[in-house]
Write a protein that binds this DNA or RNA. Structure first.
Lengths: 239, 239
DNA sequence: TAGTGGTCTAGACCACGCT
DNA sequence: GCGTGGTCTAGACCACTAC
């Protein structure tokens, strides 16, 4: 259903794009219903649906499950090298951040954590799962993993704030080097649910491994970003 | 057509995933035709198509226009901070790189270049467009822009190699700081054609601004990566 | 030329949201 | 309870690929 398409797909898509660009449909607003757009553009629902999915892939629109299609707000600019500044950074961009803790558990490290951290499979790990929103819209689902004994009693604190600051302020812990990976994927399961997104929707996975200043590995996290909500920006100074 | 789906979508998707994971369909191999899969899984083409698009979004399969669906090979690991090492890096990963120059032109800077470079709109810019492949599969479409007068006669050289090395070896030019942005988008037009991908397919756009060592801005480029072919990995040393 | 993917139609039923 | 999105069917024609 893709393609530069001889058919009407291209024309309809462009018409909708122009309405978004021209302000007929404004950021955050709902589009008319699928059936309505079908009537207007004289096409079938399957075809229209395909067009909406393409616009979703471009990051122009997004959907909330069973509620409809919405025009995407401006992207959140994110620097993965600046640790723990989600809230601050959002405020600086004139956006309203919020964080919800889904749960906290003690777990055996799952396979993908073992791949990253080079620790014994028997290590007791703490796992904190959170959802972060911008202007009321969930944009990020994160799972943090760290060795439970390193930050004893952390679960007693308010975990909706910057974990980096908690580590530093309460445990006097500072970070050293880090490694991050960025992979385009699709979300499913808990991540999809937390982001109010249909399973199979495109997303950006940012995986991070943090080392303590003494070079011991301390933690890692898995960040699933709504693909239309993020723009990664990194400044690299002179070598 | 998405969703955690009560229906058969989820089951069929999982069955195909298992065939890929289990080696029934191997990396680089073509899947059976859509009609064939429809028969086997007793579903319609629209439905099956939707499933294939989801698997494409996950990066498990990709398509070549009008030729069919193929199992995605392993991702190419790319460090955007290491300039000009595409070929070397590919070889180190045991992959076979190649580069094709699409064209070279003198142009007025387009809007998005002006946004990045803070130069007068009348500046004469050189634009080089290239496609880079891994193991014979086009994975990257790049447009390089730089001020024409800085590297006079560059067009006479072989442009299928590392431009960074050309700058250094022939003009004694070395880079200083840089800035890069990463945006999930969709490709269309020339980029889609160069990647042999249908317009509207998801892709990762890496935008880079390079400064010379004397801090003068020198060039920028726009890299469109096939979304299933890339894994960005960056190491950040101690501060 | 046969078979493929690409596009499109005109229906249908279900589960959920909203009011 | 109505309207919505989510899912699904069973066809169709076209353009291109591979042979």
């Amino acid at each position: 259903m893709r393609g530069e398409g001889r058919g009407r797909v291209k024309a309809i898509k462009q018409a909708i794009q122009e309405r978004i660009g021209g302000g007929t449909y404004r950021p955050g607003e709902r589009l008319p219903s699928e059936r309505q757009l079908c009537l207007e553009f004289e096409t079938s629902r399957v075809t229209l649906h395909e067009i909406l999915i393409q616009l979703e892939a471009e990051g122009l629109i997004y959907r909330e499950e069973r509620r409809g299609w919405f025009v995407s707000p401006a992207r959140f600019v994110y620097n993965p090298q600046a640790r723990g500044h989600f809230a601050l950074s959002a405020l600086q961009q004139g956006r309203l951040p919020s964080t919800r803790v889904i749960d906290r558990q003690l777990v055996r490290p799952p396979a993908r954590v073992l791949d990253l951290l080079d620790i014994p499979a028997s290590t007791k790990m703490a796992c904190i799962r959170r959802v972060r929103s911008i202007d009321g819209r969930a944009v990020l689902y994160v799972e943090h993993y760290f060795q439970a004994e390193v930050f004893p009693g952390l679960f007693e604190h308010d975990l909706s704030v910057s974990l980096t600051e908690l580590y530093r302020d309460i445990y006097g812990f500072d970070y050293g080097r880090m490694k991050y990976q960025i992979t385009p994927t699709a979300v499913s399961g808990d991540a999809a649910a937390a982001l109010h997104v249909a399973g199979g929707s495109p997303a950006l996975l940012v995986t991070r491994v943090n080392h303590g200043l003494n070079n011991g590995i301390r933690d890692c996290d898995f960040e699933y970003w709504r693909h239309d909500a993020i723009l990664i920006e990194v400044d690299v100074p002179d070598a």
